[in-house]
Design a protein around this nucleic acid. Structure first.
Ligand SMILES: [Mn+2]
Ligand SMILES: [Mn+2]
Ligand SMILES: [Zn+2]
Ligand SMILES: [Zn+2]
Lengths: 146, 146
DNA sequence: GCTTAATTGCAAATTTATTGCAGAGAGGGT
DNA sequence: ACCCTCTCTGCAATAAATTTGCAATTAAGC
């Protein structure tokens, strides 16, 4: 048995919920898969127009992928970007650097114990979370120590 | 000595950085102070137009308050809202309920140890953070257990 | 292949945000 | 209180982002 590719899983996900597999949806998905950082929808629309996808369609596809949980919003400064969710992309968080303005992925997530405690205290059910740190990346931090 | 009011502190903050204390800035500040939840700028502009503040000015005031660190952006579903930062509003996080769509404040924050560890591992300097949980509020969680 | 409902393209409308410039107003000095 | 200067605001115009209605297209099931 060979491992299932992300795209195969994506097709299944669409299918399982009654959405159709279309060239535009695949194009958006592939673009996000290849992309290291979250994108604003407008920017995505610009980028994909070159590949033949109508901007309006990009907005509708993002709505679709959001409904499926395939993508999720991320805070980019004071704007919003989207990136793939698990299992298409490993769960992770972000650092927004005040020094150079770049956004970095932080692989680890040690929030589970914290969140489980919040659930108990407040009688909530937490199904997802999004954390953005703001500060200085390693490079900018080193420079500011001088 | 009587305690300093939030508005007095706000006036000082403006002053200290060379910004002027204007009626529009005070109106925006007071509105945010009275408001329990984050607002989108466009919505804020609508609301304040009734009080005589020009919409364009609201955008500019929010830029000013952001630069001062008096407000900060918060993820509202897939949009952005602004709310007062510390010390005008105690630091806290949010739960976005998938059931009823409401946004709740979560008073506690136990992220400091987690963040300090991330700083060490990655050699970063973290100066702020924003966490949004997604799930079910206590009411919706209770209902879904039935 | 045919049928049908979902999806897309297009044009238009809406909503949100930005910009340039002239006039109003805040703050510091006198 | 008056001036001066520089900031801030109003307005109108512009630009950018997002939504909508409808007709044409197309994916999926039979
Ligand atoms: Mn990321
Ligand atoms: Mn809040
Ligand atoms: Zn940096
Ligand atoms: Zn709820």
């Amino acid at each position: 048995m060979t491992a299932e590719t992300p795209e195969q899983l994506f097709r299944k996900t669409l299918h399982a919920r009654g959405y159709r597999v279309t060239p535009d949806r695949l194009r958006v998905f592939r673009h996000l898969l290849a992309r290291p950082q979250p994108v604003a929808v407008a920017e995505l629309a610009d980028a994909l127009q070159a590949e033949g996808t109508h901007p309006v369609t990009v907005y509708r596809v993002i709505d679709c992928l959001s409904a499926l949980g395939v993508v999720h919003p991320v805070l980019l400064g004071s704007a919003v970007g989207f990136e793939l969710s698990a299992p298409f992309r490993a769960h992770h968080h972000h650092l927004w650097c005040r020094g150079c303005g770049r956004l970095f992925d932080l692989a680890e997530c040690e929030l589970d114990p914290v969140i489980r405690r919040i659930e108990e205290v407040h009688h909530l059910k937490v199904e997802g979370h999004e954390l953005t740190l703001e500060g200085l990346c390693d490079r900018c931090a080193a420079r500011s120590e001088a």
